[in-house]
Design a protein around this nucleic acid. Sequence first.
RNA 1: GACCCCAUAGCUCAGCUGGAUAGAGCAACUGCCUUCUAAGCAGUAGGUCGUUGGUUCGAGUCCAACUGGGGUCGCCA
Length: 590
Amino acid sequence: MNIEQEISLQIDRAITELYGENPTTAKLEKTNKDFTGNYTFVVFPLLRISKKKPEETAAEIGEKLIQIGHPVVAYNVVKGFLNLSVSDTLWQNLLHKNWNNPGYGIQHNTANRVMVEYSSPNTNKPLHLGHIRNNLLGYSIAEIMKAGGYEVIKANLINDRGIHICKSMLAWQLFGNGETPESSGTKGDHLVGKYYVAFDKAYKAEIDEMVAGGMDKEEAEKSAPLLLQTQEMLRQWEAGDPDVIELWKTMNGWVYKGFNHTYNRLGVDFDKFYYESNTYTLGKDIVSEGLEKGVFYRKDDGSVWIDLTAEGLDHKLVLRKDGTSVYITQDIGTADEKFREFGTEKSIYVVGNEQDYHFKVLFLIMQKLGRKYASGMYHLSYGMVDLPSGKMKSREGTVVDADDLLDEMHDTAKAKTLELGKTEGMADAELDTLYEKLGLAALKFFILKVDPKKRMLFNPEESIDFQGDTGPFVLYTYARIQSMLKQAGNDWQTPSGESPTLLPAERDALECLYAFPEAVSMACRDYNPAVIAHYSLDLAKSFNRLYNELSFLKETDPAKRAARLQIAAFTANTLHNACRLLGIETVDRM
RNA sequence: GACCCCAUAGCUCAGCUGGAUAGAGCAACUGCCUUCUAAGCAGUAGGUCGUUGGUUCGAGUCCAACUGGGGUCGCCA
């Protein structure tokens, strides 16, 4: 039981004793900075049963708590607000128990399994900033679920087939002259992306030409030779034409090599890969099952639908009239497949908010089909990353390329570090690692600190900050503590005698540390890494205030020195754990 | 047209699910490095929480309508 729960229980009992009844269970809030106290209980709702003024009601309850004596040691009343101060012993115990607990805030693994599906790229173009947001969110939420006690399976469903893949294949055949990543020194995914763009350009040229020849634009878009050739290629692929399959394997291989490089650099990984080329026929059996159960219905032309008008949605196609799958058919099939293989009780899909409708429908369908795991399905929907000029479009080349951005972050970190000149004596390789970590921290924090569901603006003209509420700020606080602890010897680790009285700044820091497990469970409950990002800022700030106000190494009283250094170590460890949940690596020097 | 999401300081964002005088960072301005890392700390200034109603002891938070921005309603994925 934590402090809040204990006090709430005491309040509940006090209310019943005082007024003979108690309509609700007490909810505590954290006391505002401007008032003294740790927790606040609002008594306004009780006035009906207390039949007394707010101040009197609050005071009566406060007195009861003081009589009990633990953990509340003092109270004050402002209007209807009962502010409670808890005993320092609580904070001292927290410090004593956890200052060197590496697993602080991290729950033990249970048997509950959750799958986090994220990244899920197309294999026809390199990754851009939008994918970065997806990857960082997915990785972070997976780490957060782990910290919440789940066993996590990270999955990547790769969209490796379809008409868009054939476009880059065809363009490469037509214009590529046998170019390979090796022959041109181009990263594989970028090379394929180049031909995807080339296709679009040539296709548009064809359309323009046809329109100039007098054809209707819509007609031209449908009958342009390039498009027909692509469709033919897709048919050949589906028929297993050896040449087409060979080309497809080769070009996808290039892309995977490129993706792996970027994934490694971003520090994201996966336990399970699904390939759409394997899954795109899944789900048909379930459509039959749904037809039998009466969940779906068949139209005269043979296509299969579900009626979701009762749920305020529309009719949705689940199988084409020619019997082939659509997107949602595959997702229906894959959902079952995932559950069959892993028995996951939760399944999180990290996918952009333009697919909100799709997932609403998918989850409804699984429910109607009677899948018990359906209630554990969650769409972690996130907003687009826009540029000042508007949306990023791969086909038109108006994207912030992931690899370019990572390079830029590295360079900025380097420039900033050299400017500050605090890294004498570090080897070149070590420095390079530092720049990379700092750049990544800045980028990851920049993206993860904003609420996933909000769309965000990225201005390539302005570099991502390294000062203020940023990743480097958090790392800086960590590094500062490491530097201090290195100089501190080790007598502080085993102090003798009683714990010294806490000073306000120390108490603040400990209160902040106390809040970490709560932040983890909130992030877990809301599927929101931003909670952890903001927590880590709060913690870093509380420590920096303490650092500025009091001495650590220079403190002459051994007991005080020890307690303070333990707070420092506790803070560093907690910052480290918080960073880990965000996929950010800490550094000992910067 | 229908439905979904968003709107808080000049900019980027918090606001713990209805509580006290709405908080940070950036940018601007003041201070603080012969002492533990100044990527820091302290301070000044900056607000009709998109608008209008409603619900109640109490609304940035809940409800309704409206305005503005984005998205979705494909036998694309």
